[in-house]
C-alpha cells in the first residue's frame, strides 16, 4: 500500500481571521500520485497548496505530512524543517516572488545551497532542467530583466533543481507558450514516472487530462465540491460548468451562428455539453 503523503481533515483557513479561504477540506494524497486541484478564481487553490507546503497552518482541523502534523511546533524542529524542505518543492503562482537573487543562476542554486545538497548532483540536475526549459541563456541575467514567461520558467527550474520527492506547482503552465507548456507537462510526467508525487493547480483542463489521475474540484463555497478519478470528473459537464471551468464557444458557419459550451477534452460524452442553435 502506498504511503499517505498528505492527509487533510476538516481543514479551515482564513486570512487575517476575516477572509475565509478554505472551509472544511478533506483530502488525501498518496505517494506517487498525480493530483490536480481545479476551481474558479478565488476558490482557494493557492491557499490549499500553501497549506501543503507548510507556509501557512490550518486554523482548524489538521494537515499531516507522512503522518506528522504540520504546525508551528513541527517546523521549529530543525531536522524536520530541513527534511520537509528537502522533500517538498513548491512553485508559486507569481514567479516574481520566487526570484530574489541578483542573477537567475544564483536563484536557481539558492535551494540546493541552503539545504546543503550535493554539488555534482545539483550540477547535472541543473543541466537537465535548463535544457528542458531552454533557459541556459538566461543564467547571468537578473530577474527584473526577464519576461513573465521566462520568470516562470526560472522559478520552475529553481524548484526542480532541488529534485524534491513531492512537487507542488501553482498554475505551472499559465502564460507559457504552447511548446513550453508541452515541455513542462512532459517534465512532470517524467518526474511522476520516476516515482515523484505531483500536485498541481490549474484552470486548464487539457493539462488536467494529461497530468492528473486524481482531481479535486474546489467549489465557490471553498470546500471540495467533488473529487475522484480524472475521467469521472472531466465527464461531469454540470460540475465543470458550475465551477467556471468550461467556456461558451460561439462560431459562425456562413449565415448560421451557434454557441455551445466547450469542454477541453477528448472523451466521449463530454463534447458539446449543451448545443443550442441561434439565428
Amino acid at each position: 500500500m502506498r504511503d499517505k503523503v498528505f492527509s487533510l481533515k476538516e481543514v479551515y483557513f482564513s486570512y487575517l481571521g476575516r477572509f475565509p479561504a478554505l472551509c472544511g477540506i478533506d483530502a488525501e494524497i498518496l505517494s506517487g500520485q498525480k493530483v490536480a486541484v481545479v476551481g474558479a478564481n478565488g476558490s482557494g487553490k493557492s491557499t490549499f497548496l500553501s497549506l501543503l507546503d507548510g507556509l501557512i497552518f490550518a486554523d482548524k482541523g489538521e494537515v499531516r505530512f507522512l503522518g506528522r502534523e504540520l504546525n508551528g511546533r513541527a517546523f521549529s524542529d530543525d531536522n524536520f524543517l530541513r527534511d520537509f524542505r528537502r522533500k517538498v518543492g513548491f512553485v508559486f503562482q507569481n514567479p516574481e516572488v520566487q526570484l530574489f537573487c541578483p542573477t537567475i543562476k544564483e536563484d536557481i542554486l539558492f535551494g540546493p545551497l541552503q539545504l546543503g545538497l550535493d554539488k555534482a548532483k545539483t550540477e547535472s540536475c541543473l543541466e537537465r532542467v535548463s535544457e528542458m526549459l531552454g533557459i541556459g541563456g538566461l543564467f547571468e541575467r537578473s530577474p527584473h530583466q526577464l519576461s513573465i514567461g521566462e520568470k516562470r520558467k526560472a522559478a520552475l527550474a529553481s524548484v526542480l533543481v532541488m529534485d524534491p520527492e513531492v512537487l507542488i506547482l501553482d498554475e505551472p503552465t499559465a502564460g507559457l507558450d504552447p511548446s513550453t507548456s508541452r515541455n513542462i507537462i512532459d517534465l512532470l510526467l517524467d518526474e511522476s514516472s520516476a516515482g515523484k508525487t505531483v500536485v498541481i493547480s490549474t484552470h486548464d483542463l487539457h493539462v488536467v487530462e494529461e497530468v492528473a489521475e486524481e482531481v479535486y474540484v474546489l467549489g465557490q463555497d471553498r470546500r471540495v465540491a467533488s473529487c475522484g478519478k480524472m475521467r469521472d470528473i472531466l465527464s461531469d459537464a454540470a460540475l465543470l460548468a458550475a465551477n467556471n471551468l468550461t467556456h461558451i464557444h460561439s462560431h459562425r458557419h456562413g449565415a448560421l451562428s451557434h454557441t455551445h459550451s466547450h469542454l477541453h477534452c477528448e472523451q466521449k460524452g463530454c463534447r458539446d455539453g449543451g448545443l443550442n442553435k441561434k439565428g
Binding site: 500553501s50 507546503d53 530541513r82 508559486f92 530574489f100 535551494g111 541552503q114 532541488m162
Partner: peptide, 8 residues
Amino acid sequence: AAMLSRGY
C-alpha cells in the same frame, strides 16, 4: 514565504 519554501 518563497525563501522559506526553499530551505532558508
